[in-house]
Design a protein around this nucleic acid. Structure first.
Lengths: 264, 264
DNA sequence: CTCTCCGAGATTGCATGCAACGTAGGGCTG
DNA sequence: CAGCCCTACGTTGCATGCAATCTCGGAGAG
């Protein structure tokens, strides 16, 4: 039987998921009391969760000034992609001899499902690609049977997940990206580690190029620039209110005080 | 002026240093009240520090059962070395065009000092190598000007620092290791990134081999094995008592209750 | 009109108290 | 004598209260 989670753990999981899913946008202020009320606990476990998220790099914590969802500069994101480009191809190569037929079939299904959903046309659903993509990479990385490396990767790969905007992909890049998945599956079936490694390298460098271009065009939501003079607008409200009631609190506050919105 | 640190930050820094310096051995139990007394604060900031260290992977935190200094399996340590072998050569290569003459001179001094201190004979002081080694690698990694990658590396490199036992090196491996440092400096001076990358790769794989061999011989202090049935001996006392009074507490406890010692 | 200073309100940092959980030891039963 | 349960103790998890710090509005001087 799996041990009951503590309040702090629940808070940690929910906050992390909310950040990774983009419900808490980069730069959003994380007030302790507000989060505590939402989660139905006191400030103590919330503080603990924020500390741990800060250590994970998902939250920036400034003493006496509170916590906000971490923001990333383009340079930092490039660094992350560099790191992925070093690690993931290696893990992919290691996964090749480990993968069973069932494993490969599963990845195959995910890869083709992604191609279906990502195909241009009325059925296209770019947001649905995000969890599938996460699944694909997670499975592959796990297959390598190298938990320490995988953990290291996961600890660093968070930022780009936040900026996991498939909307930033142009038509050609998206097609390439989805084709890479399928090709990696083919390499797995063929039992060719170097093939798999090469495709994964291309896959990540393709993604990196998309990110860089999107950043240049200011398409990515990186949050307020790091050393920016704090503008009034940093106080934008947390999240789409409706998607965030992890516990039914009996707080029918009449109208959330509507703070000011984006800078023009 | 640098902002004053909070109690939790002080606790975090002292705990991390104590763990990295080996004063708190792997597997040591970390009682909240005991740490709080030592640091002269209440349990709250201690708990916060432990949470963050847990997120960093230096501490294992089990709900309702307390915290202990993290232990690592040989597999995990190998994973860390694999990761270093992927990242550090890359950072070293990047550092080559960035390094100024002054930078290289400094690294040169460190490398030669290490050779002097590590040379066999009466002047040899293996423990003094540890901080110098840390300095050398930190400087080099910083020079690459790639903070994100460097941070990722630092977040993962902790475990081997704990097992930073230069005593595990045999004569030949140690000589090689120290020679590598000097050779890397030479590559920096020559402005040859590929040379530097290659030597760093060799350097890390050499260290990895030492670690694996030492682990096989059970020389490394990895702490109690991970899934081990908890033996009574896990309760061994924290640290060499004398080296650990970061604040003079007025607790002249007559005799620390002498718990039982190692398993035979 | 702009800049500086100041104070009320809001928020965080930390200490403390209490309840819940885990652990260890002793007595009872088979 | 071995094995089990039950109780007492120690430790952790969380809530709450208070002091310290920060934010932000406005008043006043230049």
């Amino acid at each position: 039987m799996t041990r009951a989670l503590t309040s702090a753990e629940r808070a940690l999981d929910m906050l992390r998921e909310a950040i990774l899913r983009g419900e808490l946008p980069a730069g959003a202020r994380l007030g302790e009391v507000e989060l505590a009320e939402r989660l139905g606990v006191s400030r103590t476990p919330v503080r603990e969760a924020l500390s741990r998220l800060a250590a994970e790099g998902l939250v920036q914590l400034v003493p006496n000034r509170g916590a906000r969802v971490a923001t990333w500069t383009v340079d930092e994101l490039e660094g992350v992609f560099e790191l992925r480009a070093l690690i993931e191809p290696q893990l992919t190569a290691l996964a090749v001899p480990q993968a069973t037929v069932a494993d490969v079939d599963e990845l195959d299904a995910v890869a083709h499902e992604m191609q279906r959903i990502g195909a241009p046309g009325p059925g296209q659903d770019l947001d649905a690609l995000v969890p599938l993509n996460r699944t694909f990479h997670d499975r592959l990385v796990t297959l390598a049977g190298h938990p320490a490396l995988a953990a290291a990767l996961a600890g660093v790969v968070h930022p780009p997940i936040v900026v996991r905007n498939f909307h930033a992909y142009d038509e050609a890049s998206l097609r390439r990206s989805l084709a890479h998945h399928v090709e990696i599956v083919a390499a797995l079936r063929a039992g060719d580690p170097e093939w798999a490694r090469a495709v994964m390298t291309a896959h990540i460098r393709n993604a990196r190029a998309v990110m860089v271009r999107a950043a240049a065009a200011n398409v990515l939501d990186l949050g307020p620039a790091r050393p920016a003079s704090r503008t009034r607008a940093e106080n934008r409200v947390l999240a789409p209110e409706k998607s965030w009631h992890p516990r039914e609190t009996e707080h029918p506050r009449e109208t959330e005080h509507p703070r000011e919105k984006e800078t023009p």
